[in-house]
């Protein structure tokens, strides 16, 4: 049996079981895989966040020493990129951020060429963000590296979904039976899709709330409910997640005006009082204060928005660590 025989083996006979080399979508993960990522993230969080008295003076671990993680962001993003970068660095991986011109879909170098060029320089994990749904999936079929989807079009944003679930689990202990309201532009939201898959797999209920122009009927499935009136959906909510309203969508006539949107779907103190006492408020950021959420809510005691940010690093460390096991 033990080829590299040492007493490591006695303590860790279990192997981590992510089925795929890539993390593309929560839709593709099993319950067990999601639990594994969350459990691992809990330990990862301890690397950089003090628990009770104990403080680590060094907020990193050497697990991914010698591995190279590339940030390939075809769409501007500071939060997600910073979070992944920090996660990789806390695991001691080498991190390279590639600046890609936004207009790289023009002929000449294709996106596959770009990634193959990176691979030729020996990278291990590529974290990809792209405005088009399906790009990480496309790349995963064409390259040897592990692809991590950091958000593709309106498809999925699996690490965000996982950090939302992690945050809820931290708060409520268990996900099963919770009712999360996702409010706003579901149609264009990759976060909503990842949350839907992740939460319903773990036994939670997701209620999608927004004007019908922004809530696609096609997302109705077991565990998912669609409502158009926020006030009547709030009383049954354990958690409310507000999605960012992109101002430019207004011009495509999805809704008449920001003012009317906030009037019906903006979360303010009065509205939140309709919800259960323990109801928490999430937002994937960056927030539009006064549009989808009032400042006093965003900064208030029910907001777990900053917890989400902290947990994002932990979850992404967990993802990178577990994927490194498939290299």
């Amino acid at each position: 049996m033990n080829k590299t025989s040492d007493n490591f083996n006695s303590s860790s006979i279990q192997s981590s079981a992510l089925n795929s080399r890539h993390l593309i979508a929560l839709e593709k993960l099993t319950c067990k895989e999601i639990e594994l990522i969350l459990e691992t993230a809990r330990e990862m969080k301890k690397v950089f966040i003090a628990s009770k008295e104990g403080t680590r003076s060094v907020k990193k671990v050497p697990a991914l020493q010698g591995r190279t993680v590339v940030m390939l962001f075809f769409e501007p993003s500071t939060r997600t990129r910073n979070s992944f970068e920090l996660a990789a660095k806390r695991l001691s991986a080498d991190v390279v951020s590639i600046a890609v011109s936004v207009s790289s879909t023009t002929k000449g170098e294709s996106i596959i060429d770009t990634v193959r060029n990176l691979e030729a320089m020996a990278c291990d994990i590529i974290v990809v963000r792209h405005k088009s749904s399906g790009v990480p999936e496309l790349l995963s079929h064409k390259v040897r590296s592990a692809i991590v989807n950091a958000g593709d079009g309106a498809h999925e944003h699996p690490s965000q979904g996982l950090l939302d679930i992690f945050t809820l689990k931290e708060r409520f202990g268990s996900i099963e039976g919770l009712n999360l309201l996702i409010v706003g532009d579901i149609l264009h939201s990759r976060v909503a899709r990842s949350d839907i898959w992740g939460l319903t797999k773990l036994g939670a209920k997701v209620t999608l709330v927004g004007p019908p122009t922004l809530v696609p009927q096609g997302l109705e499935m077991p565990g998912v409910e669609i409502q158009y009136d926020l006030d009547s959906a709030l009383p049954s909510a354990d958690a409310v997640m507000l999605l960012r309203i992109q101002q430019e969508r207004m011009e495509s006539t999805f809704f008449p005006s920001l003012r009317e949107y906030s009037h019906r779907y903006g979360l303010n103190k009065k509205r939140l009082s309709l919800a259960k006492k323990h109801c928490v408020v999430l937002h994937p950021g960056p927030i539009n204060r006064g549009v989808e959420i009032d400042s006093e809510i965003a900064d208030g005691p029910r907001s777990v928005i900053l917890d989400q940010v902290t947990n994002g690093v932990a979850v992404r460390m967990s993802i990178l660590y577990l994927l490194a096991g498939k290299l």
């Binding site: 839709e27 749904s133 399906g134 593709d152 079009g153 309106a154 498809h155 999925e156 264009h188 990759r190 899709r193 696609p216 009927q217 096609g218 997302l219 499935m221």
Partner: peptide, 13 residues
Amino acid sequence: NEGKISAILGLAG
């Protein structure tokens, strides 16, 4: 095609 699959894939239908 607009439907369940376009909604899940996040592609305009």
